[in-house]
Write a protein that binds this DNA or RNA. Structure first.
Lengths: 155, 155
DNA sequence: ATTTGCGCTGGAGTCGACTCCAGCTTTTAG
DNA sequence: CTAAAAGCTGGAGTCGACTCCAGCGCAAAT
């Protein structure tokens, strides 16, 4: 039954390289209760099973998609009991929906940036300087040399 | 040409509601030099032109997609001169590329979460209890399709 | 056997990005 | 005209999420 001396266990350094999380972060996540599956080898060193690593990937997905450490912990703390099963599943489903929304938001943001780029190119093509500031507008008339000194005070 | 008494200017409260940024954040962004277009009405109150609001939207897009306040400031500080035009455009293009990557990442994360959900459902269907922790453990070795150096950041 | 070095722990420190506050002026409603 | 509401400013405080020690123990290499 898979004890921590099995051959497929790897050390913290390898996990760090594998996942992109820093060693400190891995230790900190564990202390914070986000990584329940980590075992210890002789000498007290951490050994990570494939399952532990898959779990880390889930945690990364949750974190990257904006779930707070607190909420991940809460999720992890639900444990694996049947009684919490539905709740866990529901939580994940909500997360999936949230991620879809984020993708939508990101697409919008991408559109905003692209639009800006297009605007820039347009200005360049016409040999103009930048719009009033950066603000764009382009209603019809862009009186040059007005626009005011946007130079905000230096901090 | 468009002084701050024009009718299309709106106050900070309206902008806050419009953009979802808090009033404090709007003021703070301005102090930090992210919002150069904000004018003042009599009494020293902020008036936001449509152009200013469009600019805020750009800043929001940049921030939401992970650009730091420092970097946004740097971008803004480039000003509108022709000499910086290409640099500005290049920066925006890099950002657009970064956003595309993020969307890709998010899709992967979504897949991870969905997989987890499916796994949960499967367990439930079979009336089993736990999964990640302990249970479910890996059959053989590390998952085949996932060796990619996901490596980002730190250390 | 000693050196070199990874790993461990608990705790402190940092950093980015706000958020809150006190005290004051201006605007607006009654 | 007065009072409440909304703004303004500079500065301090908070919070989340790490990141960095100091000091110690194994352990593999020389």
């Amino acid at each position: 039954m898979a004890d921590s001396s099995e051959p497929d266990r790897i050390g913290i350094r390898a996990v760090s390289e594998l996942t992109g999380l820093s060693i400190d972060t891995l230790r900190w996540y564990e202390r914070e209760g986000l990584l329940p599956l980590v075992e210890r080898g002789p000498g007290g060193r951490r050994r990570y099973s494939p399952a532990a690593i898959r779990f880390i990937r889930l945690v990364q997905a949750l974190r990257r998609t904006g779930m707070s450490v607190d909420d991940v912990r809460a999720f992890v703390r639900m444990g694996s009991g049947l009684e919490w099963h539905d709740r866990r599943t529901a939580l994940l489903e909500r997360r999936a929906a949230a991620i879809e929304q984020q993708i939508g938001q990101l697409r919008q943001d991408l559109a905003v940036v692209r639009e800006k780029i297009a605007h820039h190119r347009d200005l360049k093509r016409r040999g103009l300087d930048c719009e009033d500031e950066i603000g764009t507008a382009a209603p019809g008339a862009l009186p040059p040399g007005e626009a005011g000194p946007r130079t905000t005070r230096t901090t």
